[in-house]
Amino acid sequence: MHSYTALRKNSTPYLLILPTVITMIIFSVYPFVSGILYSFTDIKFVGGTATWVGLENFTRLFGGKVNTSINFYKAFQKNILWTVCVIGGQLIIGYIAALLLNEKLPGQAIFRTLIMLPWAIPSVVMALTWQWMYDPFFGLINYYLKELGFIKEYITWVGQPNSTIWPLVIIGIWRGVPFLTLMLLSGLQSIPDELYEAAKVDGASVIQRFRYLTLPLMRPVTMVVLMLTTMWWWNSFDIQRVMTPVLSLGYNSMTLPILAWHEAFQWKHLGRGAAISVISLVVMFVFIIINARRELGDVKESR
């Protein structure tokens, strides 16, 4: 009787979390594990027949002069460039915006609302709007750049082999700035005013206060934000997908998620698409581990 009561008591928490765990297994863990398994097969579509091919998908990706490999290396390089530039841009503009919004300015509430707009617009609506703005013939960007004398001829900005990744980077920065601003602003507001006042009394300039007070105190928030945004933007898919026509790889803007999608769903190499995702995941995982270890080390040191 005693053991039954103890069992009931001990099992209650597990029973309570069971629905969540089951849901997670079905919708997160199972697809995740399946994806890894698929990367070792020649499966053509989800639920289809598959033959175990070992590391063949990976060797083809890393294997020299075949098209798959050429695409993979291009996409890998572009993914790094994309992530670094988007996050770098977001961080710089986000910091500036957060510092401005942290000041007691008139109309501050309006600015705080306005800066959230890019974050609030649905991805596809946002991407389609930018697509029209970048239109080589009737887009606003070409029109104003020509009117202002910055360009002589209209430019094909996106979606073609000769277009670059930079127009998409601008969209990525524009899209992500609100989140960074909000997070950094909350971090800035947690720094006690007294510290700044003391620094002022000691004769520290604005730049010195930013360099020796704000930046070190903001470091934990910044690192968390960087880690989160790196994961998001490394895996970013919607902007590139909508801005690039289906039949165009967008050669200079082809990132790993786009290539994985083409391999898996357009070219019917689901196993190869899964392999690209696995490699992408491993890179992210390594980045996260290194970052987490460094952060944990810093926390221990500060104790």
């Binding site: 199972y30 594990v33 399946s34 398994l37 698929y38 070792f40 097969t41 499966i43 639920g47 289809g48 027949t49 598959a50 033959t51 175990w52």
Partner: peptide
């Protein structure tokens, strides 16, 4: 996942 997908 091993039961539902069919890699051989």
């Amino acid at each position: 996942s091993a039961c539902t997908s069919t890699p051989t």
